[in-house]
Nucleic acid binder design. Structure first.
Lengths: 340, 340
DNA sequence: TTCCGATGTGGTATCGATGCCACATCGGCA
DNA sequence: TGCCGATGTGGCATCGATACCACATCGGAA
């Protein structure tokens, strides 16, 4: 308990613990790390000595010797977005359960910062990395460095990944609108270069095609990265007389933008417009009417990714796996049959 | 660029870089780290050799030798709460600007996990720690280990800290309600053992006392940790005939609970009840009517904390400082003069 | 010409933990 | 008595980067 700072520097080392416990350094190491044989009374003595001296193992020294740390790198696009925050939460919790700590970096959706973060992870000799990729640069770099890697939510490479069943969820959601009687259904989406967007768009098209409808390119609108920009896009989409009777927003930020745009135009949900969002957010259950949404368990996504990563670390040669997690569906009041 | 794995293990070391560049290890180290003299052409050559070999410095070895890493530990209570996520975002960004990486742990508001995380930080020899403390255990432990430390949002010790001006903000907020004509103003609060809650309560009382009102203990209601529990508490608070005409909810979760409780009872804002929240959240600007709120710049809070921490690391002996950040106020439609 | 300062060399120590090895004890069992 | 297995010792090497030292070089200034 007392803070002892015997030699030059300051921190207690295992050598002092060993001396205090009256054993050798080897034995202390075994007793503390729990590897190899140690008689119970000796283990007790060592542990007590460590406690009394306030000894804390030097993970940098241990990592150097063992050539890997007990740290997992997590790389997300935007912590301020609840989706990523939840994902990081799930990843961190699962990692801690397994005795790992999380090193978290927010790359702001920028490829250069993503690569820089990957570099930092390798430098820190993390045991593995979870990433919601924005380009293939980081993943490629990490693979070249033989770093265990799991992509989450989106996938660029052909390694391990954990994703939502985007296509299927988008299809059934679109079918929900169709079954209500909608025929002009707009899709507001950000980025179709990514698997996430591509799959969601594909699910949307699957449903329309299956219903025998023509695909109208004008109804697929791409919007930017924040709610403000989307609000503008939504206003022009919804302003005309031939506006769609329903909008499917492909993520929570887009949904917010569309919702605000609709408010600006004094459109009433669901009478004037049906709205459904991919990815639930707290506000969707609080506004009136509540917004129907596809729910993604981001926390689980993060946890599963870490789980897969731990398996990968344990067995570096097993074949790559893509884990698909089903999405949920939360029907609320923002969707109903079209007015006319 | 090509991945070279010459010797036994796998990773490229500085020795190989030195050989390829045709210089000594000392010189390579200086060239790459940018410390000490190196002639420009030599630096170029070394950098190029490192690039070609895909060399990445081993931070564990460097940290061991230098007895400190370029990592900052950040310890928050709940990443799923936007306040902490924003705070972590700000901290991470500021840290990265300074060339540090963030090691993030969510302790779930539990003292035991907090202590465990502090232990992990010390083990990793992080350069310093930011914490939103839930007990004094972790902070005390870190101080005993001579770990640079900054407390954020709440403060337990008497070291460095960065906090919101809670008392003043709570006072002016309460005065806002008083000036509208409210006399029975309830305060729904979680925890008054913490400085945050204590200060907010004090600000609330300051305003009432200054207005010459009696303090009614029945109007100060303590609620739990999540919105669901708060909802129940709010319902019993708001059910009676002598219910308060205004509620001041001391954080965003409490506000959500009170809001839901009011909805359950079909109370209309602001006619039947005025509601104001400490800590703005996205939904507050989206519901109708919008919720008046004290705004805290959590991102700035995190950034300032890291800034203070870096100063502390640079100068371990300077006196402790508490940095107070002003809160903002966002008037919306949930507050108006009482009905009768 | 001489000397200086800037630059670079190689070798060695260091950081703290761990792993390994040859060797020492010791109690108990055949 | 002899030998085994369990346990522990103490010394030394290792992980990779960095710090430091005594020396070497070399171009240019005095």
């Amino acid at each position: 308990m007392s803070d002892a700072r015997p030699p030059g520097n300051g921190r207690v080392t295992i050598k002092e613990v060993a001396e205090r416990a009256g054993v050798s350094r080897s034995t202390s190491s075994r007793a503390l790390a729990g590897t190899g044989y140690v008689a119970e009374p000796v283990r007790q003595r060592v542990r007590r000595a460590a406690e009394e001296l306030g000894y804390v193992v030097d993970a940098t020294a241990r990592s150097l010797k063992q050539r890997s740390s007990r740290i997992i790198g997590v790389l997300v696009s935007d912590l301020r977005n609840a989706f990523y925050a939840d994902l990081a939460y799930g990843a961190g919790r699962r990692a801690r359960e397994a005795g790992f700590t999380m090193m978290l970096v927010d790359d702001g959706g920028r490829a250069d910062e993503e690569l820089e973060a990957a570099h930092a992870f390798v430098a820190s000799r993390v045991a593995g990395v979870i990433v919601t990729p924005v380009s293939d640069g980081a993943a490629e770099f990490l693979r070249r460095q033989h770093m265990p890697l799991v992509e989450v939510d989106r996938v660029f490479g052909n390694g391990d990944a954990v994703v939502i069943d985007n296509r299927h969820a988008a299809r059934t959601t679109t079918e929900h609108l169709l079954s209500l009687g909608h025929r002009r259904i707009a899709l507001v989406i950000d980025e179709t270069d990514w698997t996430t967007g591509r799959e969601r768009r594909q699910g949307y098209e699957d449903a329309l095609v299956a219903a025998g409808l023509e695909l109208d390119p004008e109804l697929v609108v791409s919007a930017g990265w924040n709610a403000d920009a989307t609000e503008q896009v939504a206003r022009s989409l919804l302003a005309g007389p031939d506006r769609p009777s329903a909008v499917f927003a492909a993520n929570n930020l887009l949904a917010e933008g569309v919702w605000r745009g609709a408010m600006d135009l004094s459109l009433r949900l669901p009478d004037d417009l049906s709205l459904v969002a991919f990815d639930d957010a707290p506000w969707m259950s609080m506004v009136t009417p509540g917004i129907t949404a596809v729910t993604q368990d981001a926390t689980r996504l993060g946890a599963e990714a870490v789980g897969r990563l731990l398996d990968r670390i344990a067995d570096p040669t097993s074949p790559a796996r893509v884990i698909t997690i089903p999405a949920g569906f939360q029907r609320r009041q923002s969707t109903s049959r079209p007015a006319s």
